[in-house]
């Protein structure tokens, strides 16, 4: 991966000037490269990783992983059905996978009822959806390479040769 992407994927708030210093390139070059990544869709969006467990003490948030088996369509394969599914805002991630089912989707909602309702009324009845298996998430330990638990205190001495 290009160094600029590596830096941004780790911290999207690093400024152009800082990236220039870190990479030894000049600011204009960095700016142009990032613009191109944005235009080409390589950089899709800048987001913040939030540990929902710490802010939602009223438990008003649930997330489920759902395995979906579908019947592929002539000419367009899985893509057509996938699009119909991922277009629902409740679906926050959608992957085509190998194995015993076809799509793995992540669905978020305020509570179990809203998610269950989405599955029962939107997802399952959909033409070409042959079956679903739903796993509600109980605890999130690590996401996108980030361990959510706060790191232990440093163990190094503050000064040494």
């Amino acid at each position: 991966m290009d160094e600029i992407l590596e830096i941004l994927s780790n911290d999207a708030r690093v400024t152009l000037e800082e990236i220039a210093k870190l990479t030894g390139k000049n600011v204009a070059v960095v700016k142009k490269a990032i613009k191109k990544y944005e235009d080409d869709g390589v950089i899709v969006k800048y987001k913040t990783v939030i540990n929902q467990d710490l802010i939602r003490d009223d438990n008003s948030f649930v997330r489920a992983l759902i395995e979906v088996s579908i019947t592929p369509q002539k000419d367009v394969g899985f893509d057509y059905v996938a699009e119909r599914i991922y277009s629902f805002p409740e679906v926050t991630s959608c992957y085509l996978v190998s194995g015993t089912y076809d799509l793995l989707i992540v669905v978020e909602g305020d509570n179990i009822r809203t998610v269950a309702n989405f599955i029962a009324s939107k997802l399952s009845p959909m033409e070409n959806v042959r079956g679903t298996t739903t796993h509600f998430l109980l605890k999130k330990y690590k996401e996108d390479g980030q361990i959510l638990k706060k790191a232990n205190q440093k163990k190094r001495l503050n000064i040494s040769y």
Partner: peptide
């Protein structure tokens, strides 16, 4: 001086001779 550093809290240290 080392002892002074080690005894002080909330220091930003650029004095460490090992990987972070």
């Amino acid at each position: 001086f080392f002892d002074l550093v080690l005894g002080m809290k909330d220091v930003i240290s650029l004095g460490v001779g090992e990987p972070d």
